[in-house]
Lab assay of single mutants.
Amino acid sequence: NKFNKEQQWATYEILNLPNLNEEQRKAFIDSLKDDPSQSANLLAEAKKLNDAQA
Protein backbone atom coordinates (compact mmCIF):
# COMPACT_ATOMS: atom_id res chain seq x y z
CA ASN A 1 0.00 0.00 0.00
CA LYS A 2 1.06 3.53 -0.80
CA PHE A 3 1.33 4.79 2.77
CA ASN A 4 3.47 1.84 3.78
CA LYS A 5 6.02 2.67 1.06
CA GLU A 6 5.95 6.38 1.93
CA GLN A 7 6.30 5.56 5.62
CA GLN A 8 9.28 3.26 4.98
CA TRP A 9 10.97 5.87 2.79
CA ALA A 10 10.36 8.67 5.29
CA THR A 11 11.67 6.50 8.14
CA TYR A 12 14.82 5.72 6.15
CA GLU A 13 15.35 9.38 5.27
CA ILE A 14 14.81 10.56 8.86
CA LEU A 15 17.25 7.96 10.19
CA ASN A 16 19.86 9.38 7.83
CA LEU A 17 19.45 13.08 8.62
CA PRO A 18 22.80 13.93 10.25
CA ASN A 19 21.78 16.90 12.41
CA LEU A 20 18.86 15.44 14.36
CA ASN A 21 19.49 14.12 17.84
CA GLU A 22 18.14 10.73 18.93
CA GLU A 23 15.19 12.27 20.74
CA GLN A 24 14.10 14.24 17.67
CA ARG A 25 14.59 11.25 15.41
CA LYS A 26 12.51 9.05 17.71
CA ALA A 27 9.72 11.64 17.92
CA PHE A 28 9.45 11.87 14.12
CA ILE A 29 9.48 8.10 13.71
CA ASP A 30 6.85 7.65 16.44
CA SER A 31 4.69 10.20 14.61
CA LEU A 32 5.16 8.28 11.36
CA LYS A 33 3.96 5.10 13.07
CA ASP A 34 0.95 6.91 14.55
CA ASP A 35 -0.13 8.44 11.24
CA PRO A 36 1.55 7.06 8.11
CA SER A 37 -0.63 9.30 5.92
CA GLN A 38 1.44 12.25 7.19
CA SER A 39 4.74 10.74 6.02
CA ALA A 40 5.52 13.42 3.44
CA ASN A 41 4.70 16.27 5.85
CA LEU A 42 6.69 14.72 8.68
CA LEU A 43 9.68 14.17 6.41
CA ALA A 44 9.51 17.81 5.29
CA GLU A 45 9.43 18.96 8.93
CA ALA A 46 12.35 16.69 9.82
CA LYS A 47 14.39 18.05 6.89
CA LYS A 48 13.63 21.64 7.94
CA LEU A 49 14.76 20.92 11.50
CA ASN A 50 17.84 19.11 10.20
CA ASP A 51 18.78 22.13 8.07
CA ALA A 52 18.13 24.56 10.93
CA GLN A 53 20.50 22.57 13.16
CA ALA A 54 23.26 22.28 10.57
Rank of each mutant, 00 (worst) to 15 (best):
K2G: 15
N16V: 07
L42T: 12
N1F: 01
E45A: 13
I14R: 00
N19R: 03
D51S: 11
A44L: 12
K26I: 08
N41I: 14
D34R: 11
N41S: 13
E13Q: 13
A40W: 10
A52D: 10
T11E: 15
F3S: 03
P36T: 03
L42W: 08
L20M: 02
N41D: 13
D51T: 09
K2Y: 06
L20D: 00
L42A: 08
N41K: 14
T11N: 06
N19F: 14
D30K: 09
E45F: 06
S39N: 06
L43Y: 09
Q8S: 06
K47I: 13
I29G: 02
A46W: 01
N50T: 01
Q53N: 09
N16G: 10
L49K: 05
T11H: 15
D35S: 11
S37W: 06
N41Q: 11
Q53D: 03
N4A: 05
D35Q: 09
E13G: 05
Q7G: 04
L15R: 06
E45R: 07
P18L: 06
A40M: 15
L15P: 01
R25V: 08
L32G: 01
Y12L: 13
A52L: 14
Q38L: 11
I29T: 06
E6K: 02
A54K: 04
D30W: 06
P18K: 07
K48N: 10
K48H: 11
A40I: 11
K33A: 14
N16D: 07
D35A: 08
Q7W: 12
K47D: 02
Q7D: 07
A46N: 00
Q7R: 03
S37I: 05
A44R: 08
Q8M: 14
W9I: 15
K48W: 05
P18D: 04
E22L: 09
P36V: 05
K48Q: 08
K2V: 13
D51L: 12
K33Q: 05
W9M: 15
P18Q: 08
N1Q: 05
K33Y: 14
A27S: 11
N1M: 03
N16T: 09
N16Y: 06
A46E: 01
L43V: 14
K5G: 07
E13H: 13
S31M: 15
N1A: 02
D35M: 10
I14P: 01
A54Y: 06
R25Q: 10
N4W: 14
I14E: 01
Q24L: 02
L43D: 00
L49W: 05
D34I: 04
Y12D: 15
L15N: 13
F3P: 15
N1I: 05
I29N: 03
R25K: 15
S31V: 11
L15H: 09
D35F: 14
P18S: 05
I29W: 04
Q7E: 13
Q8K: 09
Q38N: 02
S37N: 06
L43N: 01
D30G: 09
K48T: 09
D34Y: 10
Q38G: 07
K33N: 14
N41M: 12
Q24G: 01
Q7M: 14
K33G: 07
F3D: 15
S31W: 12
L49S: 03
N1K: 02
I14T: 01
S37K: 10
A54L: 10
R25L: 06
N4R: 02
A27P: 02
K47M: 08
A10E: 03
L49F: 05
I14A: 01
R25M: 06
N50F: 01
L42I: 15
L43G: 01
Q7N: 04
N4D: 15
L32P: 00
N21T: 14
N4M: 05
A52T: 09
A27L: 14
